[in-house]
Design a protein around this nucleic acid. Structure first.
Length: 444
RNA sequence: GUGGCUGUAGCUCAGUUGGUUAGAGCACCGGAUUGUGAUUCCGGGGGUCGCGGGUUCGAGUCCCGUUAGCCACCCCA
């Protein structure tokens, strides 16, 4: 029997548990302030759920096995398919817009490395049933507020905003069909990581001799950072008829989105960057990723619109937009910025117990203080007084209440303020009331 | 799936050209201290030197394999 944790998994000792709760609380608080409702779904799902969405090649990156009933099952690698299933099943009875969030563990069978493990927590937030750009804006605003709530500022992170629809327009203007467009989007997605030569080689596979000229076009589009510039670029494209109308309405969507972001205060974190495409084919419109401001590291969060996915999985068509934020990259960044120095919880009261005879009263008082919500600690065996005080101090307790023969005989509660090093005797009375005044006005 | 670097106590690390019984600090437990605090002093438990094999009279040390961690590829929902 080995005591080691499986590769890519983390054991959660109490000090890590405190940090984990800290992150989860911020996620939950942010989501609830936007009136998102919490949902959950099974950790184990039918393998087909993921194959249908992403194809057979995904299987190698899943924890999957056959259960005793002969079903092929997999631990969830992401939340979106489960969400689509849940929403699709009740599509007609859910009030829209559907604004849901989840915090849960996900599993991917990959080689662990910096910012990536085999088991990790994700914060997922999605809006379903609303196709307008204001929904996208709401999610980006939530993403920004969530990161800000940890104390991260404009110098720490940025959200890179892009649009697959604009890319498809551009490619259509180049005369490219749907299949080639998908391939080329995949190449653009990897452009940042690949060398110029590699990209050119990949593009030549689709475009032949015009690859080099096309790459220049892409480079100039990816360099665009301002909306005026973006608008100008697309207005200048040689589009006609339906494509021209699509371009006009898409630029109008952009204005709605950017306007909303401006007013909600998220705009200063958002940067137009068409270099973001996102690997998955199911994204249909605006896509975005949050990164550390320096550009280092993996994405802190990623998301976008997926208007066709619910329909594809459930036959019930439903526009949707969402994002996911992982705890690993975020935790690394918070650690680096010293924003994860979360204090361990400490007891409000430590009861110092003189001996077996005094323990009865101490246990009774502990029960009422605990019922009132105070954190109370006392020794679980008979220990010398001096040691008990030393221990109370080491545990960071706020107050000690002394249960000795003298106190019980004279009917007093002796309370010691461990921070101030002062003691006061109180007439024995309702301890909960006394506790309120101790935390209100301090030791009298 | 591929490659590079690293594995000595719970943690951070010493450990001589290969040479007796592998050490320190921190942490933990106990004592000095039978009614009052972070200091101090004393003591204690903890190690298959990642694992397996090889070279050698002798391996923590050298060689090979393997495993885990980190890092970079692949991939990234």
């Amino acid at each position: 029997m080995s005591c080691e944790t499986l590769p890519g998994f983390r054991a959660c000792y109490p000090e890590n548990g405190t940090r984990r709760s800290y992150i989860f609380e911020h996620w939950r608080t942010a989501a609830e302030s936007f009136n998102f409702q919490e949902y959950d779904a099974p950790v184990l799902e039918p393998l087909e759920l993921y194959i249908e969405k992403s194809g057979e090649e995904i299987v190698g990156q899943l924890f999957h096995f056959e259960d005793r009933g002969g079903r092929s099952v997999a631990l969830r690698p992401e939340m979106t398919p489960s969400l689509a299933r849940l929403v699709g099943a009740k599509a007609n009875s859910l009030k829209r817009p559907i604004k849901w969030f989840n915090i849960g563990e996900h599993y991917r069978y990959e080689r662990p490395q910096k910012g990536r493990l085999r088991a990790f927590y994700q914060f997922n937030a999605d809006i379903l049933g609303e196709a307008g750009a204001l929904a996208d804006a709401e999610l980006i605003a939530l993403l920004v507020q969530t990161l800000e709530s940890f104390g991260l500022g404009a110098g720490d992170f940025k959200v890179r905003l892009s649009d697959r629809d604009l890319w498809l327009l551009l490619l259509a203007a180049e005369g490219m069909d749907a299949e080639n467009s998908a391939t080329v989007l995949g190449i653009i997605d990897k452009m940042e990581r690949n060398s110029r030569e590699k990209t050119l080689e990949l593009l030549a596979g689709v475009l032949g001799d015009s690859a080099e000229a096309f790459m220049e076009t892409v480079a100039s589009v990816v360099a665009i950072r301002g909306f005026a510039e973006l608008e100008q670029y697309f207005k200048a494209l040689p589009l006609e008829g339906a494509l021209l109308e699509t371009a006009k309405s898409r630029l109008a969507d952009w204005r709605v989105l950017l306007d909303a972001l401006e007013h909600s205060g998220a705009a200063s974190f958002v940067e137009i960057d068409l270099g973001i495409v996102r690997g998955l084919a199911y994204y249909t419109g605006f896509v975005f990723e949050a990164f550390e401001a320096t550009g280092e590291g993996r994405a802190l969060a990623g998301g976008g619109r997926y208007d066709d996915l619910v329909g594809k999985l459930c036959g019930q068509s439903m526009p949707a937009v969402g994002f996911a934020m992982g705890d690993v990259t975020l935790g690394d960044l918070l650690e680096k910025k010293s924003l994860l120095e979360v204090a361990e919880p400490t007891p409000d009261f430590v009861l110092v117990i003189g001996g077996p005879a005094e323990r009865a009263q101490a246990l009774k008082d502990a029960a009422s203080l605990r019922a009132a919500g105070y954190c109370v600690e006392y020794p679980l065996k008979e220990v010398a007084f001096g040691k008990q005080f030393k221990d109370a101090n080491q545990r960071g307790a706020r107050f000690a209440i002394i249960y000795g023969s003298e106190e019980l005989e004279s009917g007093i509660s002796k309370v010691r303020d461990l921070e101030a090093g002062k003691e006061t005797d109180y007439p024995r009375a309702d301890l909960v009331e006394l506790a309120e005044s101790l935390f209100g006005e301090g030791l009298q």
